[in-house]
Structure formats: structure tokens, C-alpha cells
Nucleic acid binder design. Structure first.
Lengths: 145, 145
DNA sequence: ATAATAAAAGACAAAAACATCTTTAATTAA
DNA sequence: TTAATTAAAGATGTTTTTGTCTTTTATTAT
């Protein structure tokens, strides 16, 4: 399960991607309102993403957040890593420090499969994949955009 | 990902099940030491499990923790539910409050599959399943028992 | 009975996650 | 060049999770 910070990050970025298609650069107030996340906390998260160069921003009137049009599609796993690290995809299912294929905990073989599937999903799914679904009306981001 | 409390709970119970087979009732000090968990925190968690009747205990000299030999095999999902609730198996992949099959978030269809597989694993796997692997030497619980 | 042992219970403390408030810096329109 | 707007930054606060300490209660061996 993702941290709330990661969830807000992904929802924010999808919202930004959708808006960017119309040439708009939403600000954090609008973003937070539309994805139903706390305003200042969202601002902090976006700040982190900008610092890590996953996102761009401009200050001042007419400013806001946007993706560099040059940049490659952004997989969810990169966002998750930026916000909370990779532990979700590496941690033992019951918390053993030295659990591995060679030295498995008693649920390792079954758990590792699921963990890897999740990692695979997070690697293959990009913000654009998700934004497209919103635009096509095949999915929803809480408030309809 | 499970909370640490759930991880400690599962490891404790597997340890207890293994010891019970030899007619032994370990105490929380021994359990905590052997599964490498904090002693008093482990005691609190075991207390919760006893209150919820997933486990039994006797106080005083010769006391400790044990399973009712009458009781049915204990699936991991019951332990997880006792410690942290079901949210792991119900929460939306990106935290939307109203995400569902009918009103999906943009990752719902793929995420729900994985979440359900995990739930299935936690439902089908019991403490005894895991204890057996330890006893057969097919898996490990950190310190070798 | 008494001492030893072990879980239960309650108060407290530390760390992490989540969240807000206030001030500063950058940008733009007028 | 001033006012308005917007992100950045830093300090602070709250809640949850994780963890510890101390006292009480139950059990058993002597």
C-alpha cells in the first residue's frame, strides 16, 4: 500500500498531465482542490518532485506546474521512489531482514511473485497511461475534470 | 506492505506454533528474542491477539503462549485484520475514496487483480502452513529454531 | 504462606507520517 | 515600478505507529 504522500503525488501528476494537454499549468491550490488532497501538503510534495526533476514549475502570475514536453513518459515507480523509496518492492513479506530467494522466509516464494507483479505494474504504468484514461472517460480522478 | 506490528504478530505466532509441537509454551521474552522483535512491543501485540481469542496464554511460572489445540487453522488475514484491519485489501491503489469496479480510478483494473491475489494468499495461508515450512527446513525465521 | 515467575495493564516516550502556517523569492501584468 | 500572483522554504503542529517503563495480577513451586 502506498503512503498518502505517494498517492497525492500520483494523483497530482495525472491531473497536471491532463491540464497540460490543454496548454494549462495548474497551481497547487487548484490541484489540491481537484484531487481532494490537503493544500499545503500537496505543495510540499510537488516541491519535492520539482527538486527531483520529475516535474517543472514556474513562479509568479500565470505560473504553475507542468511537464517538460521533452521528457520521457514517467513511470509510477519513479514517483514512488522519489517520495518513499523502493522498500515496498524489496521488503520481506513478514519483515525478515535477510529474506531472499536463497534464504527464504516461509511465505517468500508466494509473496515475491505478487510483489514483483506490483513492481512490474508500477514500472510499466506511466502518468500518461493514466492521464489518457481520464481523458477518454474510462476512469475518474474523484472530481471529474 | 504489512505494518511492523502485523509482521511481528505473524512471526511470533509461527514461532509459538513450532514450539507448541514440542509441548512448549514460549514466553514473550523468548519469542521476541528469537524473532528479533522489540520485547515489550511484542508483548503488547500478543496481548491483543489473546484478547481477540486468536491465541491463548497462561500467567505465572511455567506459563506462556499457545494455541488452543481445538482451534481451526489460523489464516494470516485474520491476524492482519486483528492488528491493522482490512484496509490493505480494500484501499484504492491511488487513494480515491470512491474507487470501485463501477467507478474505477485509472489504475483500478490492474491494481485490483494484484490486491485480490494478495488477499487470496493471506486467506489461504495459515500459521500452520508456515510453521510446517520452518520445521521441514524449507524456510527460516531469522534465528534458526 | 511465600517467593519466584510470567502475562496483563497502564502510562509514557520516540519516531515517522501527515499536515499547516508564515515568510520569502520569483514572475508578470498594469 | 508597483501590485498581484504564485511557488519555495522554513518552522511548527498533529496524529499514528512504534517502542519502553513500571506496576499489577495470576500461577506455581517450595
Amino acid at each position: 500500500m502506498l503512503s498518502k504522500a505517494s498517492e497525492y503525488a500520483i494523483r497530482s501528476l495525472v491531473y497536471i498531465a491532463v491540464k497540460n494537454r490543454d496548454g494549462l499549468r495548474p497551481g497547487y491550490r487548484e490541484i489540491a482542490r481537484e484531487i481532494e488532497a490537503p493544500e499545503q501538503f500537496t505543495a510540499k510534495i510537488l516541491q519535492t518532485l520539482v527538486r527531483q526533476k520529475l516535474l517543472m514549475s514556474v513562479r509568479g502570475r500565470g505560473g504553475g506546474f507542468f511537464f517538460d514536453p521533452q521528457s520521457k513518459p514517467l513511470p509510477l515507480i519513479e514517483i514512488i521512489n522519489a517520495i518513499e523509496g523502493y522498500k515496498l518492492f524489496t521488503r520481506c513479506g513478514i519483515g525478515l531482514s535477510k529474506c531472499s530467494d536463497e534464504n527464504p522466509c516461509p511465505i517468500h516464494n508466494q509473496y515475491a511473485i505478487i510483489r514483483n507483479q506490483y513492481q512490474d505494474l508500477a514500472t510499466k504504468t506511466t502518468i500518461n497511461t493514466l492521464a489518457k484514461k481520464i481523458i477518454d472517460g474510462d476512469a475518474v480522478l474523484n472530481r471529474l475534470i
